[in-house]
Design a protein around this nucleic acid. Structure first.
Lengths: 183, 183
DNA sequence: CAGCTATATGTCTATATTTACATATATAAA
DNA sequence: TTTATATATGTAAATATAGACATATAGCTG
């Protein structure tokens, strides 16, 4: 049981999902390709952490919908009280910033402008995500979801994404302001 | 030539370092163990991107000091203008937040308080790093390092670390404020 | 109609990364 | 004196992750 396995169980704690859905949904928190997800799901099902139901579809290819089992819930709860590993960020751009004084001014500006655009696009995505959360039938009529509300975690994570993204966007703007504009 | 290789070259663009030093210095930007660094350095030296000098020491074990070669500088410059991969964050705690409604209130508070403490410790580290930068003989007497100054990149990265860290620290405080305190 | 994208699942291979095994010196603490 | 930590370098094996290969349906575009 590695971290990605627990991540998949975490998502299934919310509701049942297909492997394809799980692959899409886990990206923001633990990037992984489908080639890593599918074999893991098969292993988790074999070991009875999750169960699987084949769902035929008309418009789209049939899918396998996975659900958390009692054993899976137990594993999740036990995992929760274990200390979590430190966050690991790998960002090629930060390595390039190290030797920014080596680069042409134009290259440096392009790189930072590209990252700024990335953060602006991300902001839109996260705001949309928030709006989608608020439109869900489970969303409380007044105020925010409480800690025991099933949407509480997703709400916290979306807010976290927005806050971190905004800090990084602001950094890009500040860094760009230090580089001379060329006309 | 993978991303970690370019990261090592980036650090060596600043000044010469031992493998051990490189391993320590690259951690905040591209986590890697020495068992990954040492073989890569041997490969980079073999392929003439870096050169190596054995430096005997009295107090400590002898070390190998690596420097960037002309070929290494060329490789760095060519790398700079290529598009960078998107940043990848892997954070076990975020996966746990997903199923926070499953957890005991005490567990949830402990987890977030632990992360808050982590960010407060990180803040101290980054402020110290800033102070150390300002104490360097190369640091400009007035104002900030300019884009062509060798310390420019390190300064930008330290500021980035401080800004992101502060956003995440604030998120922890906000999230904790949503969880009931138990007495 | 050919080619592209999204949905959907899978395998195989290559690469990246971690963990464990190894060794050596100096210093500080128990 | 044993034990731990920091410095310093390396290898071998296990695991995690990415990239390529494979297949199938449906809708859209040129």
């Amino acid at each position: 049981m590695n971290t990605l396995s627990y991540g998949l169980l975490s998502l299934l704690a919310q509701s049942s999902f297909s492997g394809y859905d799980l692959m899409l949904r886990i990206q923001p928190f633990w990037p992984a390709k489908h080639s890593q997800i599918y074999p893991l799901l098969a292993k988790l099902e074999k070991e009875d952490y999750i169960s699987c139901e084949l769902v035929p579809q008309r418009d789209k290819p049939d899918k396998k919908v996975y659900s958390l089992t009692a054993k899976g819930k137990e594993a999740l709860k036990a995992w929760f009280d274990q200390p979590a590993a430190e966050p690991a960020l790998r960002d090629e751009m930060m390595l390039k910033v190290f030797c920014l004084s080596y680069a042409k001014n134009e290259s440096a500006r392009n790189m930072l402008a590209g990252r700024l655009a990335y953060h602006e696009e991300r902001h839109q995505t996260y705001e949309l995500k928030l709006a989608q959360l608020r439109e869900k039938p489970e969303w409380p009529e007044e105020g925010l979801p409480s800690p025991k509300h099933p949407l509480f975690g997703a709400y916290l994570l979306t807010r976290k994404a927005i806050m971190t993204n905004e800090a990084n966007r602001a950094w890009c703007e500040w860094a760009l302001s230090l580089l001379p504009e060329e006309h």
